[in-house]
Amino acid sequence: MIRLQNIHKSYITGTNKLHVLKGIDLHIKEGELVSIMGSSGSGKSTLLNILGLLDNHDDGVYLLNQQEIKAMSETKAAKLRNDLLGFVFQSFNLISFKNAMENVALPLYYKKVARKKRNRMAVEYLDKLGLKDWAEHMPNELSGGQKQRVAIARSIITNPKIILADEPTGALDSKTSIEVMDILKEINASGITVIIVTHENDIAHMTDRIINLKDGRIESIIETRKVNRTESSKIPQ
């Protein structure tokens, strides 16, 4: 699903050149649940941004779904993001003036799905995450866990191949964190590749594989455990 070969990335801030990724080689297979760990400044967010087509890499080869990602037009990148990827963020990033249903439906708007259909689908997905009754509520009326569940519903409504989650539990208490992780695991169980960036060990250990980053290089990769794929999924495709 994802193949990285010798990926380099530098940022230029004023006269300084900051070399963030110094040759990353990584292979993530379809249906994997992977976490990327590292202290701040290790390059983990940068890696996620490159994986998420939110930023370009300077050097190396990036294959996404058998397609080589090189400098491409914004429009094309937007289309790929819309088709293949779903994002979950630490600060949820819901649009404050849209209610839960409208937030979840937004990716479908960019897929040109008719309004009625996309709202109906959004309510369905909210229902799956136990938020049906909150469909008409604005984000500021929701708790952190509820917001993150809305954000997750938004990330999976387009039926993506990969979910990229940047510190999805970073703003949540431990009980809610585990709930959110359970949801992500269920999503993964339905066959979607899930990549989680985190600095929390317990969160990382809920995934199949932990990729430790340090100073822009992969320091180690730890295989943890295999989830039971035969388990029936609550999140259908």
Binding site: A78, R81, N93
Partner: peptide
């Protein structure tokens, strides 16, 4: 800015 960033992340093209 943030909202537009979100929109772009979930697939809004520059034209839209």
């Amino acid at each position: 800015t943030k909202e537009i960033g979100v929109r772009k992340a979930i697939g809004a093209s520059p034209a839209s």
